[in-house]
């Protein structure tokens, strides 16, 4: 029963996507958009599948994935360090909260020119940008979660012999994990967008670069391949995160 309901759910979810593709095709078939400007969905899909056998394309894909992963890892490390500092010391907490609020709304992409000037055209500025953009959604969610840890969980641990400092790793961290993962999921989407943008602005490789290069060469089919690819990357990483969530949060109530 549940399996049937589940697959029904999946079908319902697929319908709007199929609708979009259909609308795309209708635009072309009706002749409203010239096919020189907008390639057909079939052509894009076929080219994308063909690209998967192309070492050059896979190299670009790998570059983007590397920047995403490195930036994300740095963001998580910073969240961990700041979270630990904020949980350990009231002064650190009081100092950190305002600065995070002030920095969070700044569009990080605006820092990109400055990053290029100081770090060059390599991976470094792109990774830093991904880290800066992924950082805040995770950080804000983590702060929210850490502030809402049930006091009696802390008391239970303290009574069982855990030191005050010990509760940070043994209670606050695991209790905050759901919030950290929720923040990570949002950050992942932001990271996919920003890595692509950064590669479009200045790069010699990566999916974003591929799009710009194809655009300049008026290769419209190739222009859409990186978009399909980054969408697939986002979907796959989100799926991986959801799987990690199911394992890590086995004991927590479901959250859909």
């Amino acid at each position: 029963m549940r399996a049937v309901a589940g697959s029904l759910h999946g079908l319902v979810g697929l319908a709007p996507i199929a609708g979009l593709v259909l609308a795309w095709q209708v635009l072309l078939t009706a002749g409203w958009v010239p096919s020189a400007l907008l390639p057909s969905p079939g052509a894009v899909l076929a080219r994308t599948v063909a690209s998967l056998g192309d070492p050059a394309f896979l190299g670009h894909l790998a570059s983007t994935l590397y920047r995403l992963a490195a930036g994300f890892a740095i963001a998580l490390a910073i969240v961990f360090a700041l979270g630990l500092a904020g949980a350990t010391s009231r002064i650190a907490d009081a100092a950190l909260r305002p600065v995070i609020r002030v920095l969070a709304p700044i569009p990080k992409i605006a820092l990109y020119p400055a990053l290029i000037l100081s770090l060059g055209f390599d991976d470094a500025p792109k990774i830093i940008l991904v880290a800066a953009d992924a950082l805040f959604p995770i950080l804000l969610a983590t702060y929210g979660g850490a502030g809402a840890v049930e006091q009696k969980l802390l008391w239970s641990a303290r009574a069982a012999g855990t030191s005050r400092a010990g509760t940070i790793l043994k209670v606050v961290l695991p209790a905050t994990l759901p919030s950290i993962l929720t923040g990570s999921r949002i950050a992942l989407v932001v990271a996919c967008i920003v890595v692509f943008l950064a590669e479009m602005i200045t790069s010699t490789d990566g999916l974003g670069y591929l799009l710009v290069r194809s655009g300049r060469a008026f290769q419209t089919v190739d222009m859409f391949v990186p978009l399909l690819a980054i969408s697939a990357v986002g979907l796959a990483l989100d799926g991986a995160l959801a799987a990690a969530r199911r394992v890590l949060l086995r004991g927590f109530p479901e959250e859909e």
Binding site: K152, L153, S156, P174, A175, L177, G251, F252, P253
Partner: peptide, 8 residues
């Protein structure tokens, strides 16, 4: 409220 550790 029981206050059990939900992750354990």
């Amino acid at each position: 409220e029981f206050a059990l550790f939900p992750w354990k």
